[in-house]
Design a binder for these strands. Structure first.
Lengths: 162, 162
DNA sequence: TATTGTTATACTCTATAACTATA
DNA sequence: TATAGTTATAGAGTATAACAATA
């Protein structure tokens, strides 16, 4: 591995070119993660969403959720959700619906506009992500997919770091 | 694929469990990227760095850089670098060194403390990332590495999305 | 005139701590 | 008392626009 770019390459730096044969697995993971985040950022922006708003809306496509529930989904403090939902509400992406029978609680629900934006974002990001692996043959692609799925599943059972 | 968690799973949500055989490639990429970012965040935090500061220091380990050069590395506006370097300087991680012969320019240089923190961060993150694929056999690991390296290299030649 | 870097302003995201209202 | 959610405050990161100093 080229010593001069060892750290910079690891850190997912724009313009740090490495020979593919020369890139170790950790560097590959960092670089690949950067590409994925870039795709998500670009797809969000094209639909006038922030990445966090896109994520929020994708979660809400599976059904309305309370603030505390969302905070747990996102692994952030519930106080952070207030601002997040405030901004999304101001943009007409979501609504706070009161819960009958519990006057403390609300259900955060996507508006029709929010739903459309979320689906468009999802379609576009999904396409770009699949494009990332579009050059692979079917066998490679399936093995790559299976290895990724295995890594993720394994981390759910022993979430040592995340 | 389980329809009820299609979007939430895609969005890398804490607690959205999917059967590995049921996870498509795009979802795997998003989830894997989330794990990588989590590892970087955790390793940064353990050395009292923000992820961006860790990245900045890793870049600077390869040599001092000017503000404009760093802005290009990070793909952000140079105005953002001012605050970034201000905060890193306030924490004693970097210094602005004047450039002899050009009184406009500075070289951002890591302090000894910054260098140590960067190396410790790098070692730890590298270890955690390798742990992510530690369960794979040598053949799988090498193929996974090679596929990742190929994806990254391919995106550098045609950076369609990032 | 072009380049280097900063300042001013605004927005998003997040954390902590303290708080209100309801259960 | 416990739970649901908000407010207040602070800090990090980023963008845009305008600016200063130097080349």
């Amino acid at each position: 591995m080229s010593k001069t770019q060892r750290y910079a390459g690891f850190a997912q730096v724009h313009g740090a070119h490495l020979d593919p044969a020369d890139m170790d697995a950790a560097t590959g993971l960092v670089q690949l993660s950067g590409l994925v985040q870039g795709i998500i950022a670009a797809a969000s922006e094209r639909h006038e969403l922030t990445p966090v708003q896109a994520k929020l809306l994708c979660v809400l496509l599976d059904g309305p959720k309370g603030m505390a529930e969302l905070a747990q989904c996102f692994a952030v403090e519930k106080a952070a959700l207030t601002g997040l939902v405030d901004r999304a509400e101001k943009r007409g992406l979501v609504e706070r619906i009161p819960v009958p029978g519990d006057r403390r609680a609300v259900r955060v629900t996507p508006t029709e506009h929010g739903r459309r934006a979320a689906k468009a974002f999802h379609t576009e990001a999904d396409g770009s992500l699949n494009g990332l692996i579009g050059h692979l043959g079917p066998a490679d692609r399936e093995q790559f997919r299976a290895i990724m799925a295995g890594i993720v599943a394994r981390c759910r059972t022993s979430p040592s770091t995340s």
